[in-house]
Design a protein around this nucleic acid. Structure first.
Lengths: 349, 349
DNA sequence: ATGAAAGCGCTAACAC
DNA sequence: GTGTTAGCGCTTTCAT
């Protein structure tokens, strides 16, 4: 409307106080040249005296740009998304952008409308691991451009940052196979998670390629509690090593194994995924694959920023690295050392 | 300006398509009554057909309200702040608000300007554990109202949500004293942290009140690494129990103690603070005080929202609760059971 | 019940 | 160099 008794002082107040036009004040505030030094001083003085702060809202409306990015994640409680948020926040802050966070609460149906709504207030949107089904996603994406996908593949014209969890899980499997393990238990994550699918596919391939390798797949989840609660089924599966969906699951597993007195890695090896900060400090310290989650956020931002500004998006998805620690060891049973070579997999049975 | 070749379709387009005035479209979009049903239908149809989305920016400018809250935290990597963010995000989303996150990176000098800048884009600001010194804080607060402080006390006219870490640490101390411990080691957090000061003060009081109680204060920090790295100094301090600044520090400590072969709690008891999700799953599971961090965020939001809308801010800071788990036990040495009573503290030496 | 018009606070042509 | 003016897209009096 027009009647809001705004307390805030506007550019007009400064213009009046400095006895210049609003345009000139604007020029001064934005460091535009072509303003006489004495006028600049006068305006600055007036602005300071009045404690003037330009309205970002009005600037944005006029400029057609908000300097904000929206970030939509399924669950802010997930360390992965927290790290990505950190990466995006600090990287975008460097470019003068702010981050608006939105959470879908793992509800696929809510995602689309939240995405649209959040995007409306921002110049761009970053969707992390959207749980939306493929058709809905394809329908949504054009409406929220420019948009960036993290850990989910979109159509070719939509850029994305993807971690190759397939390769990651394969690194773990190869490591365990090299230690002599032939019967592994995989603790699967949420079915709706694209990265879980990647892992499963890689396991299929591994099973096919490595002779004698058996992998028992167990539905589990992605939280500590899920891992903790899976122990009975894990033990019943009679594998010699377990590949957890992520570090959190591995953590829960380790805690419970410790309670029931199963020695890790002497009786059972355990691996995680992600290398969250705590992995190194698990008891025993956790063998896992380092996924540079924070860098992921930064990269997503860089690419998006490049897309917005028309520059070229430098940088590639950071490398994965297997970190072998104390939670994995040779397959229990005969002998102690194993030292097999990777790959060709001379089966045990 | 006026020349931006906006691709987005505006209220004017809809008005034209529906052959009504923009005012009418506005009324329809906002569910205002006083519009003939057939007109409503026509407008809705046009809007749908054109895929019209009102610009939040323009609405905000006109309405004078953004429906956004700014959240400023020192460090997004800190689980406490992450939980608070979660609480605020979900609680405010329920009221149709979005959260803008900003991070000061623990830099006190950056805080003021970030706060002002973030606040300008939002209707209100929540500052968590500001590291700013007192005078600067007092100077800043009036400029960013409405503002809410979390875990830091401001002047009376600025509302805040405070956890009584003093009481929390005292609960831990009493628990340890009851177990027979008389020489404790306190691993202190960042000096700039107000909550650390609260803990230290409470320890002074405890030392005065409980006869025979000695507390060795060691500078440490707030991260796992800090706890991990403090082990040598802790052992040198020759206490029988250690009170860690928070769960993270306790985690690092436990990990290292396990590596060097110090039995917890048989040789040394360890306590944390906060009861982060992982505390229960530490090895051994961690005795700690549950600080409902997420609720803190929700409460901060509720109070702030009440202040904005003029309602009254219901709700109180949620209760603290000591969770006794496996990381604490009787003081090592003579006998096994201790079973002393709290308080009056019959000293040992 | 609807439209015309002013205004939210700012920026950027365009004149002078 | 500086002022004038016309928007950015929306809401809301005020008149009809």
């Amino acid at each position: 409307m027009g009647r809001t008794p705004k307390d805030s002082i506007t550019i007009a107040d400064v213009a009046r106080a400095a006895e210049v036009s609003r345009a000139t004040v604007s020029r001064v505030m934005n460091g535009r040249l072509n303003v006489a030094p004495d006028i600049v001083a006068r305006v600055r003085a007036a602005a300071d005296r009045l404690n003037y702060r330009p309205s970002d809202l009005a600037r944005s409306l006029s400029l057609g740009t908000t300097n904000m990015v929206a970030l939509l994640v399924p669950d802010l409680g997930n360390p992965l998304f927290q790290q990505i948020l950190r990466g995006i926040t600090s990287a975008s802050a460097a470019a003068g952008y702010r981050v608006l966070v939105a959470e879908s609460d793992e509800d696929p149906d809510a995602e689309a409308s939240i995405a649209i709504e959040a995007r409306r207030r921002c110049d761009a949107l970053i969707m992390v691991s959207p749980r939306l089904d493929e058709p809905s996603l394809l329908e949504l994406l054009p409406q929220v451009q420019p948009v960036m996908l993290v850990n989910r593949q979109g159509p070719p014209e939509v850029s994305s940052v993807l971690v190759d969890y397939g390769r990651a899980v394969r690194m773990v499997v190869d490591h365990l196979v090299a230690l002599g393990h032939r019967r592994l238990v995989f603790l699967a994550g949420p079915a709706a998670s694209a990265s879980n699918t990647l892992r499963l596919r890689a396991l299929d391939v591994a099973e096919r390629e490595i002779t004698g390798l058996e992998i028992v797949r167990l539905d589990c989840g992605r939280s500590i509690e899920d891992g903790y609660g899976a122990v009975d089924r894990v033990l019943a599966a009679r594998g010699t090593a377990v590949v957890a969906f992520n570090d959190l699951v591995a953590f829960g597993l380790l805690a419970r194994l410790n309670e029931v007195g199963v020695a890790v890695p002497d009786e059972l090896s355990v691996t995680g995924m992600d290398d969250i900060g705590l992995a190194r400090f698990a008891v025993p310290s956790l063998t896992t694959v380092r996924v540079p989650q924070r860098d992921l956020g930064e990269l997503a931002w860089r690419r998006l920023h490049a897309a917005i500004t028309g520059a070229d998006g430098e940088g590639d998805v950071p490398d994965l690295a297997l970190h072998v620690r104390a939670s994995t060891g040779p397959k229990p049973g005969r002998g102690s050392e194993v030292g097999q070579t990777l790959g060709g997999g001379r089966g045990e049975g």
